[in-house]
């Protein structure tokens, strides 16, 4: 199944809500809004032609300079059509809430816990949203860009020393 076909189907169903479609390295990518992400995922999974029945991964990316700074990224895979798709949802840091995908895939449970652990994204409806890899009494979300890996006063690894 070609990417164009999938894109047409999605746009026919959700219209304006499907934004910024692109195909980096042949992998269809699009953004959607947090209000309809559950419906989009349900549609992708249950549509009889698309059959994106396999949840490959859930993760997040932090873009501090954007208004909606936290991007939640879903990778889905249609094993019958052998096609992958990437869905992105951007949510603000002030209210990082997004509906859970555990209602669709049991496997989303730990992926969402990991994403919560590192980015502080609140997956609404998740059965057990607690930290998974970090220590339990940690108060920050370490994968956000503002948390430095090393001493922030250290300058010898700054990009401008490398001509950038």
């Amino acid at each position: 199944m070609a990417n164009q076909e999938i894109k047409d189907k999605l746009i026919a169903k959700f219209g304006e809500q499907i934004t910024a479609p692109s195909e980096p390295f042949g992998l269809l990518t699009f953004e959607t809004s947090v209000n309809i992400i559950s419906e989009v995922l349900t549609f992708l999974k249950s549509d009889t032609e698309l059959k994106f029945n396999y949840l490959t991964d859930i993760t997040a990316v932090h873009y501090p300079e954007k208004k909606d700074a936290l991007g939640v990224v879903y990778h889905l895979h249609s094993l019958t059509n052998n096609v992958r798709i990437r869905v992105k949802v951007f949510i603000p840091t002030s209210n990082p809430a997004i509906p859970t995908a555990t209602t669709l895939w049991e496997g989303a449970n730990w992926m969402e816990r990991e994403t919560f652990d590192f980015f502080g994204i609140n997956f609404v409806g998740h059965p057990n949203l607690v930290r998974i890899l970090n220590v339990d009494n940690m108060t920050v979300f370490p994968m956000r860009r503002e948390y430095q890996l090393e001493d922030p006063n250290r300058v010898d690894k700054k990009d401008y020393f490398f001509g950038r």
């Binding site: 990316v61 932090h62 990778h75 449970n109 990009d159 950038r164």
Partner: peptide, 19 residues
């Protein structure tokens, strides 16, 4: 840049173990 902006590993052991 010279480093990845973000790199995520989809680790099969992590995902397989939750069951």
């Amino acid at each position: 840049g010279r480093t990845p902006y973000r790199l995520h590993f989809r680790r099969p052991s992590f995902i397989n173990y939750q069951m």
